[in-house]
Design a protein around this nucleic acid. Sequence first.
DNA 1: GTCTATAGGTGGATAGAC
DNA 2: GTCTATCCACCTATAGAC
Lengths: 192, 192
Amino acid sequence: MARATKINVDTSQRILDVAERLVQTRGFNGFSYADIAGTLGVTKASLHYHFPTKAELGQRLIERYEQRFLDALATIERSGVDAREKLRRYAAIYTDVLRSNRMCLCGMLASDYATLAKPIKEGVKQFFNRNEDWLVAVLEEGRSSGALRFAGSPDVVARGIVGALEGAMMLARSYGEVVRFEAVADRLIAEL
Amino acid sequence: MARATKINVDTSQRILDVAERLVQTRGFNGFSYADIAGTLGVTKASLHYHFPTKAELGQRLIERYEQRFLDALATIERSGVDAREKLRRYAAIYTDVLRSNRMCLCGMLASDYATLAKPIKEGVKQFFNRNEDWLVAVLEEGRSSGALRFAGSPDVVARGIVGALEGAMMLARSYGEVVRFEAVADRLIAEL
DNA sequence: GTCTATAGGTGGATAGAC
DNA sequence: GTCTATCCACCTATAGAC
């Protein structure tokens, strides 16, 4: 009964899957509905039924991506490891994305920022705000417990971590060298 | 005599100026010849006379940008300041770019990387290689003189600095807050 | 929900006059 | 070196049949 409206494993989700990969590899202005349609073997008109405009598609992409990310952070939180290990696992999320030759969805959208519709811009900022909030909490916990030692406000350190990981990811992807990212990320966390 | 072929302050340079700003604000796939033509008050056909294809335009953009950047680094080198001050002035180059609401040209192209022609890709990597080479030299000098103290290889630290500045820049631009970048950059250098 | 067909616009690029 | 005119491929998006 609960699945009455769920006939065929949700076309919307498969569209989002393909679109997500395209944004993460080519940027929001680097793909078209035709690319998605070609991959899925449907027509462009079908896509417009599920996502009337490209801007709406973008909004849904961010919402889903952010939810997954927050879920991952919640999982780290529940694991009960110390603050340093939490940061290692946080960086590992980025590494996993990079391994599939992708950029962070919101890192990519941040570079396309000037060309995006307002709701997408808001979504991007919210994503980074929530990342920073989580990191601030971890940093404060680590400083209290003695697991971490750092100068400056947790706020600035958190922003530094997000920026450093996003930037290192972007460069490592250009070189096609995941190890480039790992070395930088390891040192970043080791310095705290 | 020497200026015989230079009638009107070089249209090519003015085209590059406008194109550069567009790439730095909207990305390589976020602008068109029509945008440049509209700004300069010429036709698209004129632009194609100076830069036959968009890929060639992109190549010239990188070449010019890299030359300017290397000139700026050479100026820092000649100033005779200590290693820490060199890093501060290096970061200041980024701050100046960000103040005009722009991303680093090559940072932007790094995010568009998958969609670019091969010569442009090579140009992007070369830009970052030269940045890292310069930083490695400064870091080694600073470690020798005692002006800097850091763990790990200068190589990894240099890559961390470039990535951190590019990433922080990208995020700060999204928030429209230059101060966000400055706080992160200051702390980054202070930690060395 | 998916299709065919198409609208209406813009993309990069070229030919040829001036 | 800049223009007009144009090509053709592709873009986002919609109408309407099935």
